[in-house]
């Protein structure tokens, strides 16, 4: 329970980074979604309910702070959580499945955001999009490791990411 309290400051920090820091300091659309990484780590390390709750709360807050489409980020984060849950559900909190799950989940979330944006009429430079999105996906995946370590508890299912 004490470890799950870490979710509160981590959520605030992730939202701050997502909504205010990365949009201001990065170039060419490089925007790692830290809140999504947090939701993925919570899904793998604590409970999927935590991941779902975090995905909805963080996604809606992100949309309210810095996205024009309310609900888009929340939906994308939830898709990622579902995919991550599919990877870790029957494998426990092992590192490799969790990382593959996070990679797939991040890709799916970015793809969902891209697809929705294309549907509503946005246009992108494909090469620029790849350059920006691929590093974001990699970073989102790697961020799951330290966050999961911070949330790790011995009581629930043994050590994280064995």
């Amino acid at each position: 329970m004490k470890r799950r309290l870490w979710l509160i400051p981590l959520t605030i920090l992730a939202l701050f980074l997502d909504c205010f820091v990365f949009p201001a300091i990065t170039r060419s659309g490089f925007r790692p979604l830290c809140a999504m990484s947090l939701a993925l780590a919570a899904t793998a390390e604590t409970k999927v309910q935590d991941g779902i709750l975090l995905a909805i709360v963080c996604g809606l807050l992100t949309d309210l702070f810095c996205n024009p489409y309310l609900g888009l980020s929340a939906a994308a984060y939830l898709i990622a959580v579902c995919i991550e849950y599919g990877f870790v559900k029957n494998r426990g909190a092992k590192r490799l499945p969790a990382l593959f799950g996070a990679l797939t989940a991040s890709t799916a979330a970015e793809a969902a955001i891209l697809l929705f944006s294309l549907i509503i009429g946005a246009r992108f430079d494909a090469l620029g999009l790849l350059r920006a999105t691929l590093p974001s996906i990699v970073l989102e995946t790697l961020l799951v490791l330290p966050i999961a370590a911070a949330l790790h508890t011995e009581e629930k299912g043994g050590p994280a990411f064995r």
């Binding site: 909805i56 489409y69 609900g71 888009l72 849950y85």
Partner: peptide, 29 residues
């Protein structure tokens, strides 16, 4: 149900959120 089938809830939430985003894109929320 919540414990065993969180995925259903998540999927329903995803659908609802996508509908919400679509409405938001039209400025109708």
């Amino acid at each position: 149900l919540w414990k065993n089938r969180p995925m259903w809830i998540a999927l329903i939430a995803i659908v609802l959120l996508i509908v919400l985003a679509a409405y938001s894109a039209n400025g109708a929320v």
